[in-house]
């Protein structure tokens, strides 16, 4: 029985390209939110508002796990027929 990964690896290069871009956009979005969380947590911790640091860490960890799981959908390397040059 085929699964999503097998089907995706057989997809047309145009589709894999679109998937790749979507994947990178979401990862960049995650990283941007994490930078904001870290900046906010640090500034508040230095201002003696320590209550924000732990929820910010949990949110950041959650975003990392989402991004890590997201890599499952990364298209495989396109394999073409091997060309003999000699």
């Amino acid at each position: 029985m085929s699964n999503f990964r097998e089907a995706q690896n057989q997809a047309h290069p145009n589709k894999t390209s679109t998937l790749m871009v979507a994947l990178i956009v979401v990862l960049i979005l995650n990283v941007s939110i994490q930078i904001w969380l870290l900046y906010t947590a640090l500034n508040n911790a230095l201002n003696e508002n320590v209550d924000i640091a732990f929820p910010a860490f949990l949110a950041s960890l959650g975003l990392f796990l989402v991004g890590f799981g997201w890599l499952y959908f990364m298209p495989g390397i396109i394999r073409n027929k091997k060309v003999k040059y000699r």
Binding site: M20, L23, I24, Q34, A45, F54, F57, F64
Partner: peptide, 22 residues
């Protein structure tokens, strides 16, 4: 994409450090 994921992990560790230190 893998590098972005690595950066994401680094930021999560950084947030953890801030939370632990605070």
């Amino acid at each position: 994409a893998k590098f972005l994921c690595l950066v994401s992990g680094g930021l999560a560790v950084g947030s953890g450090y801030v939370a632990a230190k605070a």
